[in-house]
Design a protein around this nucleic acid. Structure first.
Length: 198
DNA sequence: CTCTTGATCTTCT
DNA sequence: GAAGATCAAGAGC
């Protein structure tokens, strides 16, 4: 079955240098970019920044087998198990040893929607990728993808072609350092894990 | 609509 | 032993 939804125009492919700067610059710059894994994915609508200097970050207490990739160079994928059942994906940023990353929280599906629907089961398109665990399931991302480079197959991230309106707010689902406004979203998007407060 | 609960991996106490 | 960067299903209002 053909994919009938028109895809957004794709910009250039992002390379590792895009991620080699402050996580607070990378996070809002990713909103509107198109993330594809094996050609399946969509427009990034929501992310959160995590910095190793604050206690909500997995890297706050130093390296472990799980978070090892966060301590390496920028431009690689960090995938971890959440609540024992879901996978969540992050882009490692800044520089080697900095251990900061951006959590991808929601996508607007544009590519390979039938494949995503198949992986997710009985779900409407609006709830296919509106959460960090949901989008990994929809794109088939798991621990197998941990440590993969972000600028080589099967991963492709296309820059946005126009700067969108971006909203920010406090992060979701955490108890430590919860007051930090490091959640970023595409203004007015219907594909968010939760609405941003007005 | 909101609230509660179960799933059960990784890390920390 | 407990908590956590989650999600879906079910009960109650």
């Amino acid at each position: 079955m053909a994919d009938l939804k028109p895809a957004a125009p794709l910009g250039r492919l992002l390379t590792k240098t895009f991620f080699a700067r402050s996580v607070h610059e990378v996070a809002p710059a990713l909103i509107g970019a198109t993330l594809l894994v094996d050609g399946v994915g969509g427009i990034i609508t929501e992310v959160e920044a995590y910095h190793h200097t604050e206690p909500a970050a997995h890297s706050f207490n130093g390296p472990t087998p799980r978070n090892m990739v966060m301590f390496g160079p920028p431009g690689f994928l960090y995938v971890y198990r959440s609540y024992g059942i879901h996978w969540c994906m992050n882009f490692v940023c800044e520089k080697e040893g900095s251990a900061s990353a951006v959590l991808i929280r929601a996508l607007e599906p544009t590519h390979g929607i039938p494949a995503m629907r198949r992986r997710r089961g009985l779900h409407d398109e609006r709830s296919l990728c509106t959460g960090p665990g949901k989008l990994c399931e929809a794109m088939g991302v798991s621990i197998k993808h941990n440590t993969l480079p972000l600028d080589a197959p099967p991963i492709a991230i296309h820059a946005r072609t126009h700067k969108p309106e971006i909203v920010s707010g406090i992060r979701i689902g955490i108890t430590k350092a919860a007051e930090l406004p490091w959640r970023y979203g595409l203004k007015g998007s219907k594909f968010l894990s939760k609405p941003f407060p007005a």
